[in-house]
Design a binder for these strands. Structure first.
Length: 498
RNA sequence: GGCGCCAUGGUGUAACUGGUUAACACGCCGCCCUCUCAAGGCGGAGAGUUCGGGUUCGAUCCCCGAUGGCGCUACCA
């Protein structure tokens, strides 16, 4: 396959009838990667010729999705709705050269014929209308005419960069509509008119377009244009292996942003859906999973694209997310976290330096950016809540509050407060009271963080500082209804005191 | 229904032009750490490559068929 062009021109051509969905995002990513890898041009084109279903809000949604995953385009966005003359001229060329003809059948007629008979395909009844007669009918304005492509006999084929040679018998193709009777082009016409006009060299798109491709190949030859290289990318399916849809939950890319997914994690995950670095040319990357944007650009080629559909696996996405969050520097994470804080109307009360330190401190346990506005709050502010489950698990014993107060008192008067000294004092108290250190430790953790899961307790103490530790240990008893609530429900015995 | 495409553990992928104990990752299970786990460390189960025929000394890999899945089948894109 000619896979190493000097400066390819590719495009992503979404239709603004919905938000940028996962499949579209992956197609956009592959196009972008391909263009960047070969130093080519990535064009964004909005296919909004379906006025009924297209909307400006959707256009904005798509652009937002593109920006979120970090895909920038070199030309466009072009809007097909603003390029109508090109399509009309192209249709005219096809008519003039005898490759297309006017059709006077109305949509209603077509539908009823289809419903009553076995005429699954258009019967071509207008194809052989007398030229002059046809022209007259059209010009008298009474019968609006659509323009159809006259599919020739024979077969149509192309060498797909992913699937190899694909061939269709022309008999399987109907004389499809190029221009609707209102003069608006259909997809079949506008794609090829634009792809030719924009001098595209490679068409990377979803495999759902394979069946449309022969119709386009036919137009290229009718127009005397050079055929670009087609590379169809397998589709992304839901967990039940049916086409990914709203039924499977989030389908819009922005929904993943809203779930606290880091864009690079999403991009990395997406890149590996239907593509792999390929061990032949890059044996050293055979077992790799995480790739930066630069890595992806360097490694991406068409022959790494697989032919079979891929299933979208949320667990794997979640794993990538934890990997990226963990690997990020806190100052790179901060702006992303701040967005979450704003959304949650949470205002951290500590200094920026402390905040950055806190991010580094807790990020190994983060699964989503949401955690920073949720279960990690106690590290950024004194305004946090006690997780009822954590209270039930570790703070249920009625003797705990006074023990924690005792501990607080000892910390308060201690000459110094370090990770080591905090541990020393706590263990001494446990021994003295003849209770398990673990009970005190776990109880303290909940008192300090509100959570059952957090970093090592003494590290948390050192991080929080003596004053906060003392204050939080003391306040376990008061002002936390959850606690008393949980105290009543004393089924959990696992960590209670002896 | 017709046409097209695809087919490696639950999932994503790997396995040079046919020769491997079929690899890696996610997930799952277990153990360790013991101060928690959604963190970390260690280990394990899980496919003989959808099935059936060929070709071959030898097929995940080539051919044929079946089955299954997906796609297209609009004056949608």
């Amino acid at each position: 396959m000619p896979d190493s062009p000097s400066s390819p021109r590719v495009r992503f051509a979404p239709s603004p009838t919905g938000y940028l969905h996962v499949g579209g995002a992956r197609t956009a990513l592959f196009n972008w990667l391909f263009a960047r890898h070969f130093g080519g041009t990535f064009i964004l084109r909005i296919e909004d010729t379906d006025f009924e279903r297209s909307s400006e809000a959707m256009v904005e949604g798509i652009l937002e999705g593109m920006r979120w995953i970090g895909l920038d385009w070199d030309e466009g966005p072009f809007f097909q709705s603003q390029r109508l003359p090109l399509y009309q001229a192209t249709a005219q060329k096809l008519i003039d050269s005898g490759h297309a003809y006017y059709c006077f059948c109305t949509k209603g007629e077509l539908e009823s014929r289809r419903a009553e008979g076995t005429a699954a395909m258009y019967d071509r009844r207008c194809r052989n209308l007398d030229r002059a007669e046809s022209e007259k009918r059209r010009l008298d304005g009474k019968s609006p005419a659509a323009v159809r492509f006259a599919v020739p006999d024979g077969a149509t084929s192309w060498d797909d960069a992913v699937f190899g040679r694909v061939e269709f018998a022309n008999a399987e193709l109907e004389d499809f509509v190029l221009l609707r009777s209102d003069g608006i082009p259909t997809y079949h016409l506008s794609v090829v008119a634009d792809d030719i006009d924009m001098r595209l060299t490679h068409i990377l798109r979803g495999a759902d377009h394979i069946s449309n491709t022969p119709k386009q190949v036919l137009q290229y030859s009718a127009l005397g244009a050079e055929l670009p290289i087609f590379a169809h990318v397998p589709l992304i399916l839901g967990p039940d292996k049916t086409r990914l849809s709203k039924r499977h939950g989030a389908t819009s890319v922005i929904a993943y942003k809203d779930m606290g997914i880091v864009p690079e994690a999403f991009r990395n995950f997406l890149a590996l859906l239907g593509w792999s670095p390929g061990s032949k040319q890059n044996p050293q990357h055979k077992d790799r999973e995480t790739f930066s944007s630069e890595d992806l650009i360097q490694l991406f080629t068409l022959d790494g694209i697989s032919k079979s559909n891929a299933v979208f696996d949320n667990d794997k996405l979640a794993w990538f997310n934890t990997e990226y969050i963990r690997a990020y520097d806190s100052n790179k994470l901060l702006p992303l976290i701040q967005i979450e804080w704003q959304a949650a109307e949470f205002v951290p009360t500590r200094t920026e330096e402390e905040i950055l330190a806190a991010i580094d401190f807790v990020k190994p346990r983060a699964r989503s950016l949401k955690d920073f506005a949720g279960s990690f709050r106690a590290h950024f502010s004194d305004d946090f809540e006690y997780d009822p489950a954590a209270v039930t698990k570790f703070l249920a014993d009625p003797s705990l509050p006074s023990l924690l107060q005792e501990l607080a008192a000892r910390y308060d008067v201690a000459p110094d407060f370090t990770e080591a000294s905090a541990e020393e004092l706590l263990r001494a108290l446990a021994t003295e009271k003849n209770i398990k250190a673990g009970a005190l430790i776990n109880g303290s953790r909940v008192a300090l963080t509100g959570q059952a899961v957090a970093p090592s307790l003494f590290a948390v103490m050192a991080f929080l500082g003596k004053d906060r530790v003392v204050q939080r240990l003391n306040s376990v008893d008061k002002g936390h209804p959850e606690r008393s609530l949980a105290g009543n429900a004393s089924q959990t015995q696992s960590n209670s005191l002896p």
